[in-house]
Computed example of a mutant assay.
Amino acid sequence: MTGGPATDEATEPYRRRIAEIWSAALGTPVTDAGHHFFAGGGDSFQAALATATVRREWGLEITVQLLIDHPVLGDFSERVARCVDER
């Protein structure tokens, strides 16, 4: 896998929307692709809330474990984009 510009362009809409979802769940603005969900104050309840919103938004069958395994916004967004593409 390459992390070049094409990947960045393809995941940008996901990253923007997930940043909004995380901001709502955390109660604080999330704008940086390097934002770490848990280091930024997130807990298991907020992770479940954010993950449920992502599931509803894109009709995915993902669990909180995806967020635990990929807690950085850019990485999580890329994983979500892949899941959408694989449907």
Rank of each mutant, 00 (worst) to 15 (best):
Arg87Val: 01
Ala33Leu: 02
Val64Ile: 15
Met1His: 11
Val80His: 02
Thr51Trp: 05
Gln46Ile: 09
Arg16Ala: 14
Ala6Asp: 14
Asp69Glu: 12
Phe37Leu: 12
Gly59Cys: 13
Phe37Asn: 05
Ile62Gly: 03
Gly42Asp: 08
Glu78Cys: 06
Gly4Gln: 11
Thr2Val: 15
Gly34Ile: 12
Ala52Thr: 03
Phe45Gln: 13
Ile21Phe: 01
Arg79Tyr: 04
Trp22Gln: 02
Asp85Ser: 15
Ile18Tyr: 03
Cys83Ala: 11
Leu60Gly: 04
Leu60Ser: 03
Ser44Asn: 05
Ser77Phe: 07
Ser77Lys: 06
Leu26Ile: 15
Arg82His: 12
Ala48His: 06
Glu20Gly: 12
Asp75Trp: 07
Thr53Met: 13
Glu20Phe: 09
Ala47Cys: 11
Arg56Asn: 15
Gly59Ser: 14
His35Gln: 11
Met1Ser: 15
Trp22Met: 01
Thr51Lys: 04
Trp22Glu: 00
Leu73Ile: 15
Ala19Ser: 06
Glu20Met: 14
Gly40Cys: 06
Gly59Asp: 13
Thr7Asp: 11
Phe37Asp: 06
His36Phe: 06
Pro13Trp: 05
Arg79Ile: 03
His70Gly: 06
Ala10Trp: 09
Thr51Asn: 00
Val54Ala: 02
Phe76Thr: 07
Thr28Ile: 14
Tyr14Met: 07
Glu78Gly: 09
Ile21Tyr: 01
Arg15Glu: 01
Val64Arg: 11
Thr11Asn: 05
Asp43Gly: 14
Val54Leu: 05
Trp58Cys: 08
Asp43Ile: 15
Leu60Glu: 13
Glu78Gln: 09
Ala6Val: 14
Glu12Tyr: 04
Ser44His: 10
Ile68Met: 00
Thr53Ser: 15
Ala47Pro: 00
Tyr14Pro: 02
Thr31Cys: 05
Val72Phe: 00
Ala33Cys: 00
Arg16Asn: 14
Gly40Ala: 04
Ile68Gly: 00
Gly3Tyr: 07
Glu86Leu: 06
Arg87Asp: 04
Thr28His: 13
Gln46Leu: 06
Arg82Ala: 14
Gln46Thr: 10
Phe45Trp: 11
Thr28Trp: 13
Gly59Leu: 11
Arg79Cys: 10
Glu86Ala: 07
Thr7Ile: 10
Asp75Gln: 10
Pro29Ala: 02
Val72Ile: 12
Thr63Ile: 11
Pro13Met: 03
Arg79Leu: 08
Ser77Gly: 13
Thr11Trp: 04
Val30Met: 00
Ile68Trp: 00
Glu61Met: 10
Thr28Pro: 02
Asp43Leu: 08
Leu60Tyr: 05
Leu66Ile: 08
Trp22Ile: 13
Ala10Pro: 05
Arg79Glu: 09
Gly74Asp: 05
Phe45Asp: 09
Val30Gly: 01
Val84Trp: 13
Cys83Ile: 00
Asp75Val: 14
Phe45Leu: 12
Leu26Phe: 13
Gly27Asn: 11
Arg82Gln: 10
Leu66Gln: 09
His70Arg: 14
Gly42Tyr: 05
Gly42Met: 06
Pro71Tyr: 01
Thr28Tyr: 08
Gly27Gln: 06
Ile21Val: 12
Ala24Ile: 08
Asp75Thr: 15
Pro29Gln: 01
Leu49Gln: 04
Arg16Trp: 04
Leu60His: 09
Leu67Met: 06
Leu26Asp: 04
Thr2Tyr: 14
Glu9Ile: 13
Phe45Glu: 09
